Amino acid sequence: MKFQNTGYYYLAFLVLAFVGFWPSYFSKFFDGSADFNQYFQFHVVTALLWVAMLVIQPILIRKKKFALHRTIGKFSYFLVPFLFISVLLLANNRISPDLEFVGPEFWIPFKDLVIFSYGFGIAIWYRHSMAIHARGMIVAGLALLEPVMVRVMYNVLGLQGTYPYILGISLGYVVLMVLIFLERNEKQGRWVFPVGLGVFLIVHIIRITGFNPDFWERFSHWFVSLPLT
């Protein structure tokens, strides 16, 4: 499996993101009610640039534009740290240190960084192995799926409660399990998706159960109390 068509899937994902964020973000620029601060806008720009890379890079491989693919890939070394910073600054800006329990709130954005770090780390470490590199990038891309799907459930479909959240995160599991099944006979890189599935399970179990050990609560409270924003 060479995953050369994943760019087109991420293009569809970009459309889905536009739909999911339309009520709470994009529509605000048309009705004049957009009042998003610079931290939110910074995050939007970095996230859109990352999705753009996910769309472009596999297409370049499909068209055998390897040199351009490598050049754009090097841009990720610059973009990804800024994407991380944007997530952390937004969390620092939006989460109040006065909450009774800060840890579970901080875990919501932080868990996506955990998933992303696993996928992107694999992709960079094995950048000379196309089979493993591509799988890592797919997992890194799936880190963005939950925020989009959850907003589709709440903003577009108007669902409420816990079950829409479960439905929202389920698509990532479905994608991973389908990929694991499809590549069951592959000889190289077959471990990336099963480990990624394990990472998904761990971070979501923590999220759903509200597991909040003392060290995490203290760290989270310290971080959101920093005068960063």
Rank of each mutant, 00 (worst) to 15 (best):
V51D: 01
L16H: 04
F116G: 01
F42Q: 09
L157Y: 12
M153A: 00
L99E: 07
L201H: 09
L11G: 03
Q57W: 04
G161F: 06
V102F: 14
L176S: 12
R62T: 05
F78P: 09
F106A: 10
G73W: 05
F42C: 09
L54N: 05
S27D: 12
I115N: 00
P147D: 04
N92C: 03
E217F: 03
H69Y: 07
Y39M: 12
K65F: 02
L144K: 07
L60F: 04
F78S: 03
T162H: 15
G198M: 06
R127H: 13
A123M: 05
S220D: 08
A34L: 11
G20C: 14
I95V: 11
Q41R: 14
V139T: 09
Q160K: 13
L54W: 01
F82W: 10
T209P: 05
V102L: 09
P23T: 08
G103E: 00
N185M: 14
G7P: 04
D98F: 11
M153L: 00
Y165R: 05
L179T: 04
G189N: 02
W50T: 00
F78H: 08
V175Q: 12
G196Q: 05
S96K: 07
E100I: 14
F116V: 04
L83A: 05
L90Q: 08
K74T: 14
S33K: 09
N93P: 02
M149R: 08
S76Q: 10
H128S: 12
V15S: 05
N212L: 11
F13W: 03
N5F: 13
L99P: 05
E217T: 02
F40A: 09
H128Q: 10
I108W: 06
L99M: 14
F116W: 09
Q38R: 12
S117H: 02
V139W: 02
N155A: 00
R218S: 14
A47V: 13
F106Y: 12
S170I: 01
V15W: 11
L79W: 04
P104I: 00
Y25C: 11
I132T: 09
A67L: 12
I124H: 04
N5M: 11
M130C: 09
I206T: 09
Y165S: 04
F82C: 08
M149I: 06
M177K: 14
G20D: 04
N212E: 13
L167P: 03
H43D: 07
A12M: 11
N185C: 07
N5A: 10
G141N: 02
W125P: 04
S96T: 15
F26K: 10
P104A: 02
K187E: 12
L228N: 06
F200Q: 03
P194D: 01
P194F: 01
R94F: 11
F40L: 13
Q41H: 13
G20E: 03
V224W: 09
